[in-house]
Design a protein around this nucleic acid. Structure first.
Length: 305
DNA sequence: AAAATTTGACCCTA
DNA sequence: TAGGGTCAAATTTT
């Protein structure tokens, strides 16, 4: 259909698929090495080696993300003169105006997506990445608007991670954060081990335990821990309505602030349309259930609580 | 001045 | 066509 046909999502070519498979294999091997290090040397004795392995894992994951992103292939199509059908007139000229760019944006249906419900705002906000708000929407039948954030490093590093946050319950306050896509940026706000993405495949740093030494035993819960945030935070406090959940974190981070129990938070992780094409999560996250895709060995691992 | 947020308009999908 | 996601100019904050 000439230059004005709707751009198709181009599948990865065979060499590209092979490359992905090869990288996945490498990542699995690195994961095995990591668990070997954990078992044989303990937590303290192998820090440099572990750091190295973690860097390797991160590199693998980023490579996979880059290679497997359909949107990257779409981009190729676009750069060869394809436009969406809603902009047929713009086929007359390929000059990329601001309006043209707007026409081109694509929703991400194939991105990894997971949901965090929490009554603990700190967990959502101090996730180790810098976010910039780019929109706010009133949602039908929802009492509170939804706030849209993208990674601050979208412009400089092309990081495609986004999240949206919505208050879903008034009393007690409860917030739902939906993360879409993994961070490809390399800049963490703080300790490089901090992580925003509790189910990221780049995330060997998240620790899950049923044996919280302080309170979990009492609560029968689990906890997620990650490193303290000391650098710039995504927001500046409660003064704007756009950020209902935004405590400024002090340097004295305490993992107990991030203790969770099933009654405090739910996680739901899926790569919808890809991993579970038949599964439409909508707004239905089963309370008290945590499906957590921690990717240590395979592409997805689910934990049901 | 630069960075971040707000907000109305545009675009996509069901 | 409605609802939701994104863009980008205008505005505010740092």
């Amino acid at each position: 259909m000439g230059c004005c046909s709707k751009p198709e999502i181009l599948p990865a070519s065979k060499p590209e698929r092979s490359a992905i498979e090869e990288i996945i294999k490498g990542r699995q091997l690195a994961n095995q090495l990591l668990s070997l290090l954990n078992h044989s040397l303990g937590d303290d004795g192998s820090a440099p080696a572990k750091d190295l392995v973690l860097k390797v894992l991160s590199s693998f994951s980023n490579s996979i993300t880059l290679l497997s992103s359909n949107e990257e292939f779409q981009l190729k199509a676009n750069t060869h003169g394809h436009k969406s059908e809603s902009s047929t007139e713009s086929c007359m000229n390929d000059i990329s105006t601001l309006k043209d760019r707007r026409v081109r944006y694509k929703r991400r249906k194939n991105s990894k997506m997971w949901i965090v419900d929490s009554t603990t705002p700190g967990l959502i906000n101090n996730d180790g990445h810098a976010w910039r708000k780019y929109g706010q929407k009133v949602i039908l039948n929802a009492e509170h608007p939804r706030h849209y954030y993208k990674c601050t490093h979208k412009s400089d590093q092309g990081c495609r991670a986004i999240k949206h946050v919505q208050r879903i319950q008034k009393d007690p306050p409860k917030y739902r954060t939906t993360y879409v896509g993994h961070h490809s940026c390399r800049t963490f706000l703080n300790d490089p081990r901090s992580i925003s993405d509790p189910v990221s495949e780049d995330c060997p740093f998240v620790r899950m335990s049923f044996e919280d030494p302080i309170t979990a035993g009492k609560q029968g819960g689990f906890f997620i821990s990650y490193s303290p945030s000391t650098a710039k935070q995504e927001h500046k406090g409660e003064k704007t309505t756009s950020n209902p959940i935004n405590p400024i974190q002090s340097s004295s981070w305490d993992y107990r602030d991030h203790l969770l129990s099933p009654s405090h938070a739910t996680f739901d992780s899926l790569d919808y349309d890809t991993i579970f094409p038949e599964f439409d999560i909508g707004d239905d996250v089963i309370p008290g259930v945590m499906n957590m895709g921690v990717d240590f060995d395979d592409d997805i691992r689910l934990f049901d609580f």
